[in-house]
Simulated assay, not measured.
Amino acid sequence: MPLARRARRSVDIWPGFVDALATLVMVIVFLLMIFVLAQFFLGQALSGRQKALDDLGREMAALAERLNLQTRANAALEAELVSSRAEKDKLEAWAAGVNQDMASLLALKDEKEAELAAEKKISDEGRAQLALLSRQIEAMRDELARVTAALEASEARDREQKAQISDLGKRLNVALAGKVEELQKYRSEFFGRLRKVLGDHPGIRIEGDRFVFQSELLFQTGSAELGTEGVEQVRRLAATLKDIAKTMPQGVNWVLRIDGHTDKRPMVSGRYPSNWELSTARAITVLRTLAANGVPKDRLAAAGFGEFQPVDNGDNEAAYAKNRRIEIRFDQR
């Protein structure tokens, strides 16, 4: 039994080794064949790409040449454009000089005509330019003549209008002076008759063209309601004014203006926010009373000045009393 097992273990392995080696050789040969084929096809591809690269290089060279040609052409065009712009600027400057100076146009025309006579040769462009200059000169002369004629006509109209205005002003001044004189006459008559009616009351005085009532004569302190004496005084004023109005011609355009004034001490009552409101309310009260007693409403006007037009700038009771007043003005509208 041990001998039999030893015999089985001593098997010959050489044939298997030869088969494996042969298989390895075949694989190597196969790989070499694949490598050779790959080298062949890679060479073909690389040679094709090289050809494509050469073609592309030639196209790039052609494009570069075209680009150089285009660049030179652009440079030439830019130079021509700069030259054209310079020529345009020269022409514009020349045209401006032509439009601004008539004498330059005439001198240039004479120069062109002298050159034409001396050289006996001039281009069509020069002839057209000379003709254009001549037409421009004639047109400017015609325009100058029209402007001169219009200016002379305007000056003649101005002189005529000034004469009319001067004459109208003189007549207006004469008429105004007559109306003022006539109004002054009725104002004097009105003040004279009013003084007789009202008497020599210490609270009533005449100052220039104004008839002045002290506020205490008409109103209570801080009030815009007429007292009993105030109502009576305003009724007398209305009656006198109506009598005077009956004798006035229709052409005398008069108006009776009532101005309210206060002193500078601030208001303490809550009814009137300031002296402005109080002075205005008092003037309107007098106006309404006059209208209620028959004075035409279109002949009455009222204004309030508060403490801003004093007749006495003192800080005492006498000054305050003078400044608290109602002024009646007989005036022209």
Results as ranks from 00 to 15, higher is better:
294 G>W: 10
42 L>K: 07
243 D>V: 09
212 V>R: 06
276 W>P: 00
30 F>N: 05
312 D>F: 03
106 L>M: 13
26 M>I: 12
49 R>W: 13
311 V>F: 08
126 G>I: 13
52 A>E: 08
63 L>Q: 06
186 Y>V: 00
48 G>C: 06
153 A>E: 15
25 V>T: 13
34 I>W: 00
296 P>M: 02
203 G>W: 14
204 I>R: 13
264 K>A: 02
287 L>H: 05
315 D>C: 00
313 N>R: 15
135 R>H: 12
78 E>N: 13
242 K>E: 04
193 R>L: 04
307 E>P: 11
214 Q>L: 15
29 V>Y: 02
62 A>F: 12
301 A>M: 11
27 V>T: 08
73 A>R: 12
240 T>Y: 00
162 K>R: 14
278 L>V: 00
318 A>S: 09
166 S>T: 14
317 E>Q: 06
278 L>G: 00
240 T>H: 00
244 I>L: 10
322 K>Y: 10
229 E>R: 13
270 G>M: 08
23 T>I: 08
140 M>L: 12
298 D>K: 06
126 G>V: 15
133 L>Y: 02
83 S>Q: 12
7 A>T: 10
68 N>F: 02
246 K>Q: 07
146 R>H: 06
304 G>K: 01
319 A>C: 07
92 E>F: 15
287 L>K: 09
161 Q>L: 15
178 G>D: 14
47 S>E: 07
183 L>E: 09
115 E>R: 11
105 L>D: 00
135 R>A: 10
162 K>L: 15
